[in-house]
Amino acid sequence: MKQRQYINGLMALAVASVIFIVPFVYIFLMAAKTKQQASTLDFSWPQEWHFWANLVEVVQTRNYMLLLAYFNSTVITVGAVTLLVLFGAMVGYVLQRRPSAASRLVFGFVIAGLMIPPAVVPTIWVLQGLGLFKTLTGMILIQVAYGLSFSVLLFRSFIATVPRDLDEAALIDGAKPWQIFYRVVLPLLKPVTVTLIVVQSIAIFNDFTNPLYYLPGKENVTVQLTLFNFQSQFQSQFNLLFMNILLVTIPPLIVFIFFNRQIVAGMTAGAVKG
């Protein structure tokens, strides 16, 4: 029995490795090849290792556009995630602590936000009216609007585990509502906050569709947009294209290595009982 499990495990390992690891090995090998060798697209060992040269060339392409893209993507991600934590926790807190008709109505809108696809062109129309179209601020606010539902749901279910006695003790001590939230409750939300930061950062950093619509223009490029545009520019330079893919894949890999547990917690929230 033990031996059979061992053999089954090895077989599963072999199959899964081929299916799920080989594409990443392919990306890595392609990124290290010379232009000539990469153009055959085949699965082979690099004859010459051009890893560093390719890296430098990709970064320098189009006047260091990739660095600008990393900068923009970082600004959008950090800005949006900060607001998502703060505003999401505030809404989740009130919804959990104050059961009322108004709370139920708000909760309905939260669920709607998870299901309804954004109406693209009307959103551009609103952004133009507000003067936020093609701006990083506008992009941050869009990501907040689209990410709020997930954020509120996650905080709401976690806040249910924070005892109400704490709020009441603070209230008796004369704390204002804002102080109760900010000084008493918010610090206790650290585990779920880490989860939310990690999961939303990856989602926003990887987002392609929304910047495509709401952030066109050369000076506003994001990491995913740059990669997509390089696909047509590097048509004969697959080594550089795959180096770019590799660079885009590394940030989530690093986050995954350090925050594995938090990612799993965030992604499976609601799986056991929604």
Partner: peptide, 26 residues
Amino acid sequence: SPYPYWFIAPAAAIYIALFLVPTIAS
């Protein structure tokens, strides 16, 4: 109430302006 509804306001403003209004306008 120690749980005032204005806590919802900042999130609601962004959600209404950039999600709800475009959806209804669509």
